[in-house]
């Protein structure tokens, strides 16, 4: 492990930390433009975070240590996840420690803790949100795993680094199975990040909220960490999507010259992806909670179909 690689990892850690609120701000801004509003600007999530960090935290009387520890656990899980995905270069010292299955495990760990914390206070909304979150989560997880398995069978490895190297740096090949995987992944992304067809990120209406219901009791720095963590989660998902389905431009290990180009490409991909997400959210309406299992079931089936088509079309000897 070289020092340059360590430096690289440090740069990426800081980069994802700063880019996550900006990405969220960009998506919100795009939605505002699409709805003919002026919008609060790309920097608004950052301003919110700064404001929340300056406030005094209020805790419920019956809050247990778990409730207080959860924002920190959540934040570190999401930061770790975002730092593990190769966004700029495939030369990351942290990445060999964790493959895609463990990455899904990290997301699951964060989900378990936020749900426990939501039920910890004992309010009705908290446990309602937690139950809904677990419903969405347990349906989304197998779909996500199948998507990642499709990519893994192509590259013969569950390591994200190897997957990206196979897809981006070898000879260009069209993978039909990845078309299925991409659609399934998009559905999982929408569900896991509380985006519109499944959950509305900007709602506070009791009947519909999932993510917001769980974090109602948090305030000040705890809330800031939770919000930042969900921005990081969105960024992590977007970068996983980029790494799997549009990895071109990610620098090879040791190739410092390609770094500025990789940075530029990453930002344009994130801008495009964010705008696309905003467009999709504007065009679709939130679905009933009872339709969510159907939505996620479709995602899972598509991911399985991706695997099947891989064996049918891509393993000719």
């Amino acid at each position: 492990m070289s020092y340059t690689a360590l430096l690289f990892q440090a740069v990426q850690n800081v980069l994802v930390l700063l880019a996550a609120p900006l990405l969220l701000g960009w998506i919100t801004q795009c939605r505002a433009w699409l709805q003919n509003r002026t919008g609060a600007g790309v920097l608004q999530p950052c301003r919110n975070l700064i404001k929340l960090f300056h406030k005094d935290a209020v805790l419920a009387h019956n809050a247990s240590p778990l409730f207080r520890a959860t924002p920190y656990i959540l934040f570190s899980c999401m930061w770790l996840a975002a730092a593990l995905v190769p966004v700029l270069a495939t030369d990351l010292p942290l990445s060999p420690a964790v493959d895609v299955i463990a990455l899904v495990g990290i997301f699951a760990l964060a989900r378990v803790f936020i749900s426990l914390a939501a039920m910890d206070i004992g309010t009705a909304f908290g446990s309602l949100g937690a139950r809904r979150e677990m419903l969405v989560g347990f349906l989304a997880e197998p779909a996500l795993l199948m998507v990642l398995f499709t990519a893994s069978t192509i590259s013969q490895s569950t390591s994200l680094i190897t997957i990206v190297e196979t897809l981006a740096h070898k000879q260009f090949v069209l993978y039909p199975s990845m078309a299925f995987a991409a659609v399934a992944f998009l559905m999982v992304l929408l569900a896991e990040n509380a985006r519109i067809p499944v959950d509305n990120p900007s709602t506070h209406l009791e009947l519909t909220m999932i993510h917001e219901a769980m974090i109602l009791e948090y305030s000040a720095r705890h809330l800031a960490l939770v919000e930042w963590a969900s921005a990081l989660k969105l960024l992590a998902y977007m970068t996983i999507g980029i790494a799997l389905f549009a990895p071109w431009g990610i620098a090879e290990s040791g190739d410092w010259g390609a770094l500025p180009l990789a940075l530029l490409l990453l930002f344009s991909k994130l801008l495009l992806g964010g705008a696309g997400l905003a467009l999709m959210e504007t065009l679709s309406a939130k679905m009933r909670i009872f339709r969510v299992p159907e939505f996620m079931g479709t995602a899972f089936l598509l991911a399985v179909l991706g695997l099947l088509t891989h064996f049918l079309l891509e393993t000719t000897t």
Partner: peptide
């Protein structure tokens, strides 16, 4: 994997056809 590019394109179209068949089924 050494399939010519046009064959890959046809395979891709086939996969998209299957995707649309499922979309129709769930529409």
């Amino acid at each position: 994997m050494n399939i010519p590019f046009t064959a890959q394109l046809i395979n891709m179209c086939a996969a998209l056809l299957l995707l649309i068949a499922f979309a129709m089924l769930s529409q």
